[in-house]
Design a protein around this nucleic acid. Structure first.
Lengths: 144, 144
DNA sequence: TAAAAGTCTATAGAATTAATAGAGTTATGT
DNA sequence: ACATAACTCTATTAATTCTATAGACTTTTA
């Protein structure tokens, strides 16, 4: 399961992507409308800003806004930022690789092979799932 | 990430499947050869027995052995047994369904739609990954 | 009938996740 | 200039889950 942090992050991003290029949005507004604890959300938005996805403006009339294009922000990136590796085994990730302590022979491990496949397929799906993709799917679903 | 419990379970199952129909295997032997803490393994094997995958024989010459055919035990089943749902979101599972508390409108949720896809693809892969499938892949990898 | 082997209950330590509190800093509009 | 709105940072805590261990008990069989 993904963490609440990731889920909150995605929801906030979709919310902000919907008002792309309409100026900064208050943290308090995002928190209220997306049902996210405000203090928790502050930390999340800050991480997204440090990752170069959002930017913020201080003072009166300030808030957070998207700086990447909605079609350039994908779910794999967001998940990695908050939950780390996407793979289900430490020995099948590129960036967070770690050997399984109990492993007898990694090179011929059939389990590893299976989860390698799961990881690849999952990353493929998550990479093509961008904010704009999500929003356009939502519009389609609403129309029916 | 999957839990160590699931990982240990899979390793123990593959180990037992390799000696299918050759009589009971000692817990202590599985623990030693697969590098699994023995007491922890005992609990795992018991769960697998209660799930109808293994059976045990007590007393001298006893131990655990596979009662399902190796081609009938798949990774989806094992993962669900120890880690619960395979899906990454509570709202996209069949057996463990739960609404996301913070969700504004589930019916038109684009995030849900994405993770639905991930879940379906993952379950497909895990279901076709049986013990015999894993073992035959391992044989292939060893030959090279 | 003793030893080998599985079964069961309880507990504890470690790690992670989720959430909150509060002080501090910065930018803005008037 | 300056009050205010808003973001930033550090600590702390509560809750949950995961991993592992201990020990007593029961069953089976040579």
């Amino acid at each position: 399961m993904i963490s609440k942090k990731t889920k909150y992050a995605i929801n906030a991003l979709v919310y902000l992507a919907r008002q792309h290029q309409q100026g900064p949005v208050l943290i308090s507004q995002i928190a209220r409308e997306q049902h996210i604890p405000q203090k928790f959300l502050e930390a999340i938005l800050l991480d997204l800003k440090n990752a170069g996805i959002l930017n913020s403006k201080k003072g009166r009339g300030g808030g957070y806004y998207l700086i990447k294009k909605p079609e350039e922000v994908n779910m794999a990136e967001v998940m990695r930022l908050f939950d780390g590796a996407i793979a289900l085994l430490p020995c099948v990730t590129h960036r967070y690789y770690e050997r399984c302590e109990e492993c007898v022979d990694e090179a011929s491990c059939g389990i590893r092979d299976v989860f390698q496949e799961v990881r690849n397929e999952t990353v493929n799906i998550l990479k093509r799932s961008t904010l704009s993709e999500i929003i356009s799917r939502e519009e389609q679903m609403k129309q029916r």
